[in-house]
């Protein structure tokens, strides 16, 4: 069995409102899967269903072959997964070492965590009170607590939010090392660069549905095109004509044009009277912008 997570036609309703509206996707073992989407898209509800802490209305969700809706299976799943929730918090009067030790104790057996603390640069802080740590350090303690029992699947819900760029890169390296050790990683993030850099597959959720699902490269190719051109027009009336010929997005006084091939790029540059032009390679952010209609990082 190569699938770590299989979700089929999953629905979660609150009255008439569908927080998760018939989504289906598969996460293979050993890959990094990112779920992206604006606030309220249904990402956290989906993750919580997979973590067996929230029930669902209909459909099917399996983690490592276990059915998340069955209590006995849920008990097995909880032994095999590690979780970092958004804004990780814990018993604030405990020391770093005690927090990680506590989570290790919940899984039975003896779990050494010195290496984990060292790899997250927490060794020197193990006797610091959790409450006295910075936001980034707290997040690292959360990550350590999530993997202390060597889980097969790690759910990381916005693991780098609030971290400085240096710490963020450390966490990226750590996630990559987890993948190299064969762990399956289910990630949500607000940082498109992070998702693009780390993910094997990406699902973009919007209003409870999966709006796009593929590898980052294919998503960019499908939605971003060959190049994107950011134009500041001399004559604003030209914008309407460009929008008829190409996919465009307006942003303040600029228009972003998605080009599918080099010939179209040449035509645009020759035929358009512009004040300023910038030609760029599309990114996942452009995909998100086109699929969801808003910029996640703003």
């Amino acid at each position: 069995m190569d699938e770590a997570i299989v979700v089929g036609s999953l629905v979660k309703r609150y009255g008439s409102f569908a927080a998760v509206d018939g989504i289906s996707f598969t996460v293979n073992k050993g890959e990094i899967f990112s779920l992206l989407g604006p606030n309220g898209a249904g990402k956290t509800t989906t993750i919580e269903i997979l973590e067996c802490i929230r029930s669902y209305t209909s459909g099917d969700a399996r983690v490592l072959g276990y059915d998340v809706s069955k209590p006995r299976d849920a008990r097995e799943i909880k032994k095999l997964i590690g979780v970092l929730p958004q804004d990780f918090s814990t018993f604030e009067n405990l020391k770093v070492g005690e927090v990680v030790g506590f989570f290790a104790g919940l899984y039975g057996g003896k779990h050494e965590y010195d290496d984990i603390l060292q790899s997250l640069d927490l060794s020197n802080d193990r006797n610091k009170k959790f409450d006295d740590l910075s936001g980034g350090m707290k997040q690292k303690v959360g990550i350590a607590s999530a993997i202390v029992h060597e889980p097969e699947i790690v759910f990381l819900d916005e693991p780098t939010t609030g971290l400085d760029p240096g710490s963020r890169r450390e966490v990226w390296k750590f996630i990559t090392r987890l993948k190299e050790r064969g762990k399956t990683i289910f990630l949500t993030t607000h940082y498109m660069e992070e998702a693009q850099l780390l993910s094997d597959h990406i699902g973009i959720m919007n209003r409870g549905k999966i709006a796009a699902l593929d590898t980052p490269q294919r998503l960019i190719a499908q939605y971003g095109g060959c190049k994107k051109v950011e134009l500041k027009l001399k004559d604003e009336s030209l914008a309407a004509k460009i929008s008829q010929d190409f996919e465009t997005v307006r942003k303040n006084d600029k228009i972003t044009v998605y080009i599918k091939n080099t010939r179209d790029l040449n035509r645009l540059m020759v035929e358009t009277d512009y004040e300023d032009i910038e030609v760029m390679t599309p990114t996942l952010e452009d995909v998100f912008l086109k699929v969801v209609g808003i910029n996640l990082e703003e």
């Binding site: 973590e51 067996c52 802490i53 909880k78 979780v83 929730p85 918090s89 814990t90 018993f91 919940l106």
Partner: peptide, 16 residues
């Protein structure tokens, strides 16, 4: 208090 700060949610995902 722990529920409000999300600690219980984290514990729910463990075998506790």
């Amino acid at each position: 208090d722990l529920r409000k700060r999300g600690v219980i949610r984290r514990l729910l995902s463990t075998p506790l």
